[in-house]
């Protein structure tokens, strides 16, 4: 087996004997080990959520954002390396603007996410570039309704009902699979998403976390906006309470 130390994993233009391009896989690790990001598509809209460790109290609250607005109808969460992710966001903003300028209509989400996947893919084709250590988790609302897409650094892009990337993604995905997302409203889903994120937290570390939430739905006038701070707090608190409740129930049953 080739792999670490074999010399086949040093350049993005080198295939390993088994036909893998290790450099793109390594870049994917940056996303996998990064903060957890969730995107869900509900019946009336779509939600993006990111859980971030709370840094020092000297930092302004809500200042290091990971959810960005791409256009009025579309927003994006960036897992992994934030600076790399911002490059994707800038590109997305340009694509959306150019499409609008040329066709006079908002860019369809499929077109946008495909173009972003292409953009990411270019970085994995040349020896003088490196693959981006991020991905584009896109939520939007266009003529065909709400969408959630994930365009990855290796150049693929899929549409999802619900998707999680970053640390603890497996656990969150399992939780998402249990939910009936297509029957939920965004408002209901907000709490559920918070719950998923809180559940996968590593309780052993004493770190504090904050959840960044943004959505687009009929309620927001089909504009991609951050969830109002008080509503976000409310959802997080409700989610915490429910988890505690469940834990109590569990221990009651055991006892």
């Amino acid at each position: 087996m080739s792999g670490v130390g074999s010399g086949y994993d040093l350049s993005v233009t080198t295939f390993s004997p088994e036909g893998r391009v290790f450099q793109t896989e390594y870049a994917g690790k940056a996303t996998d080990n990064g903060v957890p990001c969730v995107g869900v598509c509900c019946k009336d809209g779509a939600i993006l959520a990111v859980e971030k460790p709370e840094e020092t109290k000297m930092m302004l609250p809500n200042s290091n954002r990971r959810i960005f607005t791409v256009s009025r109808h579309c927003g994006m969460a960036v897992p992994g390396k934030l600076p790399d992710g911002r490059q994707i966001v800038s590109r997305a903003q340009q694509e959306a603007e150019n499409y609008k300028r040329f066709y006079g209509e908002t860019i369809p989400t499929k077109v946008l996410t495909d173009r972003l996947a292409n953009f990411c893919h270019v970085f994995s084709l040349y020896w003088h570039l490196r693959p981006l250590g991020s991905a584009a988790l896109t939520a939007s609302f266009d003529d065909d309704g709400p969408h959630v897409y994930l365009s990855e650094t290796n150049g693929v892009s899929y549409r999802y009902y619900g998707i999680a990337v970053g640390k603890g993604r497996q656990g969150i995905k399992t939780e998402l699979e249990r939910m009936k997302l297509d029957q939920m409203t965004c408002k209901e889903a907000l709490k559920a998403v918070c719950k998923c994120l809180i559940k996968q937290r590593d309780d052993s570390s004493n770190k504090k976390f904050e959840i960044e939430l943004a959505w687009i739905s009929e309620e927001t006038g089909r504009e991609f906006v951050r969830v109002p701070a008080d509503l976000a707090k409310e959802c997080e608190a409700a989610a915490k309470k429910e988890i505690e409740q469940e834990e109590d129930d569990d221990s009651d049953m055991e006892g």
């Binding site: 040093l10 993005v12 290790f22 450099q23 390594y26 996998d32 020896w127 490196r130 693959p131």
Partner: peptide, 17 residues
């Protein structure tokens, strides 16, 4: 290490030294 001399090389852990 062998991953730390080039800015376009990712380490297996997903870092750029």
């Amino acid at each position: 290490n062998q991953y730390d001399t080039d800015v376009t090389t990712w380490s297996p852990q997903g870092r750029i030294f």
